[in-house]
Simulated assay, not measured.
Amino acid sequence: MPIDVMMPFYGDVAQFRQAVTSVLDQRDGDLRLVVVDDCYPDPEPREWLASLTDPRVHYRRNETNLGVNGNFRRCVELVEADHFVVMGCDDVMLPDYLATVRRLAAAHPDAAVIAPGVEVIDDHDRIVTPLGDRIKTFLTPKADSAKPAILTGEALATSLYHGNWTYFPSLLWRTAAVRDVGFRPGLEIVLDLALLVDLAADGGSLVHDPTVVFRYRRHDASVSSVQAVDGRRFAEENAFFADEARRCAARGWPRAARAARLHATSRLNHAQTRAVAAVGRLRSTKPAP
């Protein structure tokens, strides 16, 4: 059965073309690609998709701009397959992505989420390792292709509260599990983390195989980067983690509650961002020699 690749679109057209091409070039071509256009003003992406004449490609345009959370929710509504991906319109699937996640889903049919290995690229397709991604690597559960890591319940939630080591656009989701839970309304930065921990609370499991089959693009224009500068990211994160600590305590998950209260990587990222901003202010006010 095809895997649905849902691609919410609003962004760089050249990177969008690269993302679409990487999907259509999969060695496992049993897929349906659905581009969900969130009212992008330029008709070029729609016209280019039509020129592909590939029956696997489907285009949907929202009647109004739904924003990040709304468009992700719209993507889930449009899913028809048993498993789906919500891929970023600037990311890249390596040729064996679909074959790898399909194999893992078949081996773990009850898993709510499949998390393959990911490498990070910049705007120029260069592989990079920023501090935040080095921390993600440190926090990622140890596993190999012969023995993937399987996390569920409090152990899964605790791992993710310490630091969300997953890359949302690379994740394969089991449709029935996600529809039982859904994205929480009102979140833009931590909506993927919220979904993951809600699945954990619902008894869902995550399977991680470190085989690298996906490239996640990290750049300054991302929603999280822009909101980190003006503080909205951290306001959302802090409110989320405080609420999660209360939820976990009520659920009888003390380790998860403690991890949510600490959310150490969020605090580190906040401190790093404030330090960079402070340096920038010093440089802008320093008199010329």
Rank of each mutant, 00 (worst) to 15 (best):
T265E: 11
A271Y: 06
K136P: 00
A50N: 04
D192N: 12
V5F: 14
P109N: 08
L104E: 03
A157R: 05
P43Y: 15
W165C: 00
D243N: 05
I121D: 11
V76M: 12
L94E: 00
P41L: 13
R215D: 01
A264Y: 03
D12G: 06
D122L: 10
A155V: 06
R73I: 06
Y167M: 15
Q227G: 02
P2K: 10
A201Y: 04
Y167K: 09
W48K: 07
K286Y: 13
R233A: 04
A242K: 00
G153V: 03
D230F: 07
L24P: 09
D91K: 12
C75E: 07
D110L: 13
P169N: 09
A146K: 11
N164L: 14
A81E: 01
L156N: 10
A112C: 10
A221C: 04
R73H: 05
G163A: 08
E47Y: 01
V213R: 08
D82A: 15
Y167G: 11
A105W: 08
R27L: 15
V20R: 12
Q18D: 13
T152A: 08
H108M: 02
V57H: 08
S170Y: 07
L193S: 07
G132D: 14
S205G: 11
G203R: 03
P109V: 02
F84W: 11
Y10F: 15
L78K: 00
A14P: 06
I135H: 06
L193R: 12
A157L: 07
V279G: 15
S266I: 07
V276E: 15
D180R: 15
D122C: 02
C39K: 03
L33T: 08
S266Q: 10
F9M: 12
P148L: 03
H162P: 02
E236W: 03
V276R: 13
S224R: 03
T137P: 00
T175P: 06
R232V: 09
L187Y: 08
P148I: 02
C39A: 10
A111N: 07
V279R: 13
V279N: 14
P210G: 03
E47C: 00
P95N: 10
A155N: 09
A242W: 00
P2L: 06
G203M: 04
Q26T: 11
P2N: 11
N269M: 03
E63Q: 02
Y40M: 15
L196Y: 00
S284A: 13
V57L: 14
L139P: 02
A249S: 07
R61N: 05
L193C: 04
E47D: 10
L24R: 13
D82L: 04
F138I: 03
R73Q: 15
R217I: 14
A221V: 02
L160A: 05
P95H: 14
V118K: 05
L151K: 00
E77T: 08
A257I: 05
R32W: 09
R258L: 01
A112T: 01
R27K: 14
L156T: 01
E237G: 13
K142W: 01
E244Y: 11
R281H: 10
V226T: 14
T265C: 08
V128D: 00
W173L: 13
D82K: 14
T273R: 11
D12E: 09
R179K: 14
A264N: 01
A106V: 14
P43D: 13
V229N: 08
R184Y: 05
Y40H: 15
D90P: 03
A99M: 07
